[in-house]
């Protein structure tokens, strides 16, 4: 039990601590120019300034707002679509090629179109997040449905579970292990995409923060922005992982 606690909180902290010290020492000893690599102290100062001006908070919220909307809309459309397509052969034949064709196109390639359609602001960014999340989520859900043991489908048929009940009580939980993986990976991608999108399409958010800081050669703020992105991404991932550890999802253990 003690070892477990240590490995859960102490060890990660230790890793970050050692890295920070090594970073500080390297910058100091090698006399690195602050324009190439500011030290941890300078970065902390930069972040402090950003925090005081209120921009740090506003921009983080702006990015989260876009990711949340795009991601939730994508998930809300993709899971039902994936469940239906997972069961419906004709639908799969109709739409799967389209999905597989659109999926490898980077959401960033859509930026010009998104800006033409939605102008500048939250909407194109949300649209891009939607695109980046929707297709992978459909594919994950479909493969989740395909992976449901045929015995369970037979049992459902045997007990006359049909319609909505079939989708909610059999398909959704049956595909849930894959859906969960999809939710996690997709959220990671969404967070990657938002930063890139904000460098081009909008004038707020963490991506914009980094671009803006670079333009004024505030490298401490650039790195500060990167750190905030990393921390926020980590928190988002943790939040998804909590879904696995609810009391009502403890049955997921058997799939690990």
């Amino acid at each position: 039990m003690r070892v477990y606690r240590y490995s859960k909180y102490l060890y990660p902290t230790l890793t970050f601590l050692v890295l920070t010290v090594a970073w500080a020492l390297l910058v100091r000893l090698l006399h690195v120019s602050p324009y190439k690599m500011p030290g941890p102290l300078a970065v902390t100062r930069g972040l402090w300034h950003l925090a005081l001006s209120g921009r740090l908070f506003d921009y983080t919220i702006a990015s989260l707002y876009r990711v949340t909307w795009g991601y939730y809309m994508a998930v809300a459309c993709a899971i039902p679509a994936g469940l239906v397509l997972g069961r419906w052969g004709t639908g799969r034949a109709l739409f799967n090629p389209l999905i597989q064709f659109l999926r490898p196109i980077s959401p960033l390639a859509w930026i010009p179109l998104a800006m033409m359609w939605f102008g500048v602001g939250d909407q194109p960014a949300i649209f891009l997040i939607f695109l980046s999340s929707f297709f992978p989520m459909v594919v994950f859900t479909m493969s989740g449905v395909a992976g449901i043991k045929s015995t369970y489908l037979r049992v459902a048929e045997n007990f006359g579970i049909r319609g909505t009940a079939f989708y909610l009580k059999v398909l959704l939980p049956g595909a849930f292990p894959d859906i969960l993986v999809g939710l996690r990976i997709t959220l990671g991608t969404a967070w990657l995409v938002i930063v890139a999108a904000e460098m081009i399409a909008v004038k707020s958010g963490l991506g914009y923060l980094i671009l803006d800081a670079r333009n004024s050669l505030n490298m401490d703020q650039v790195i500060g922005g990167m750190i905030i992105i990393g921390i926020t991404g980590l928190c988002l991932d943790r939040a998804i992982c909590m879904l696995e550890n609810l009391d009502s999802t403890r049955w997921l253990k058997i799939y690990r």
């Binding site: 043991k149 015995t151 369970y152 049992v155 009580k169 049956g174 049955w251």
Partner: peptide, 8 residues
Amino acid sequence: EDGLFPWM
């Protein structure tokens, strides 16, 4: 094979 739904 086991036919109980593991999620119930």
